[in-house]
Nucleic acid binder design. Structure first.
Length: 201
DNA sequence: ATCAAGATTACCT
DNA sequence: GGTAATCTTGATA
């Protein structure tokens, strides 16, 4: 087995749709001391800094979205619907306001912890495993990501993403983004074809 | 100050 | 397929 290495800042400092597609197949890791949770990123969405009406950054910087306008390679966490958190990776140059929403993860390590966070029990059925991280708010609940993690540097040791081989273009499916009412013509949602941990076909 | 919408989810028929 | 839950945020006055 090869040495896993954290994605460098240059990885994130690129055009948001390229980063989004490249993030598929990479390993998302959350570490708390000796506790490790991880999984394969299988579904993402790109939100651009310019000309994207569905993006939080569309109307300029606010207190809520300021991390989105910060440096690439940091985590943008927001609260929505009065009860859910969603996690994004900031991309591109500082001040641009682009980010990739992580929508689904195939669990690998720390599944009993992920399960406890989501379902308040360690042993789960196959159905519950599929349902563990197949949605942006489910990921945050499973990985214990809240307001506190907003702005975290992905070069650090608490939350980071490990490199892994690129998913070939032939295995990447593009669709409209989920749950938005503007810019629905843009096919900026990407997921790994035939992966059972994707949120929706 | 007020208010409507929201990058969702779980549970219902 | 439909909708309640739940509250922060940003826009408007």
């Amino acid at each position: 087995m090869s040495n896993p290495v954290k994605l460098p800042i240059e990885f994130y400092n690129r055009e948001v749709k390229s980063v989004a597609k490249s993030l598929l197949g990479k390993i998302f890791v959350r570490r708390n001391d000796d506790l490790v949770m991880s999984g394969i990123i299988v579904e993402v969405e790109a939100y651009n800094g310019k000309g994207d009406e569905a993006s939080h950054s569309f109307n300029g910087m606010t207190k809520r979205n300021e991390i989105m306008f910060g440096r690439a390679g940091h985590l943008y966490v927001y609260f929505t619907y009065g009860m859910h958190f969603c996690a994004n990776v900031v991309t591109g140059k500082e001040g641009f306001g682009a980010a990739v929403l992580i929508r689904a993860i195939e669990p690998i390590d720390g599944i009993s912890t992920l399960a406890k966070n989501r379902f308040f029990k360690e042993n789960i059925s196959h159905k519950e495993l599929i349902n563990l991280c197949n949605g942006p708010a489910k990921i945050c609940q499973a990985f214990s990501i809240i307001r506190e993690q907003n702005g975290i540097n992905l070069s650090g040791d608490e939350i980071y993403i490990l490199d892994a081989p690129e998913i070939p273009t032939s295995k990447i499916v593009s669709t409209p983004r989920i749950g938005i009412k503007k810019s629905i013509d843009l096919l900026w949602r990407y997921y790994i074809k035939d992966n059972p941990f994707v949120s929706k076909k």
